[in-house]
Amino acid sequence: MTGTSTQRMPKISLRGVKKRFGPKVVLDGVDLDVDDGESMVIIGGSGTGKSVLIKCILGILTPDEGSIKVGGVEATRLRGKERQAFLEKFGMLFQGAALFDSLPVWENVCFGLLAEKRIRRKEARDLAVEILRQVGLEADVANLSPAELSGGMQKRVGLARAIAAKPEIIFFDEPTTGLDPIMADVINSLIVDCVQDLGSTTITITHDMASVRKIADKVGMLYKGKMIWTGPKSEIDSSGNEYVDQFIHGRAEGPIHMDILKL
């Protein structure tokens, strides 16, 4: 990988990605470029298809139309071994944590490494404890089952699992939802570290403007199935886009209408 070639190729590149569920159009031609080692943050209202978008990149959902390139390779057509190798580049924190409830926490954290046989079971526990420390969890959590954890703790275990294999690309779906402000800041710093130390490319979905300001290199806003604005973090306050303005200030009045029955 030559990161400094003259013709810069984005690490992740989406063109015209469309996805619908039955009659409901969720993504309606999304374009997105994320450069190598960049931290992209996607904001947007609840139910606008942010989670669907990153699931399309991972191939968990198949887009109806459009092209998704990761490292220059068309991801939507990969099968078998190639797809396996493709997925090994990724780490993903699911919005609902999605921990394997039949396995103890430490096995959850090291699942990817064990599956790829990069470590032995004996070493896995110690490594898991170390990674759990990074997300602010004590060593005794390692032996618990996911059902015995609080929601925020599950989220942090999910985060530990996502970063355990030190992947090239990491997706965080609402990493700080359900955490107290202090822990949220710890997690934000951890994501920044992932980008800076591991050189990972990350896409983070969040509603939390503090996160946006802390971790983003670039920000994109998804609205009605399209990326209506993308730009560097520094321009977010002067975007001149009234949708973005309304979102970052959390105003009820503005071009984005919430369909709520007024009493």
């Binding site: 396996q84 599956a115 699992r161």
Partner: peptide
Amino acid sequence: AEIGTMRVTEQIDALTTLATD
């Protein structure tokens, strides 16, 4: 019930992203 719960709680998606079929 077990696999269905794994499906609806996205555990099967998580398996896939951890490169496990």
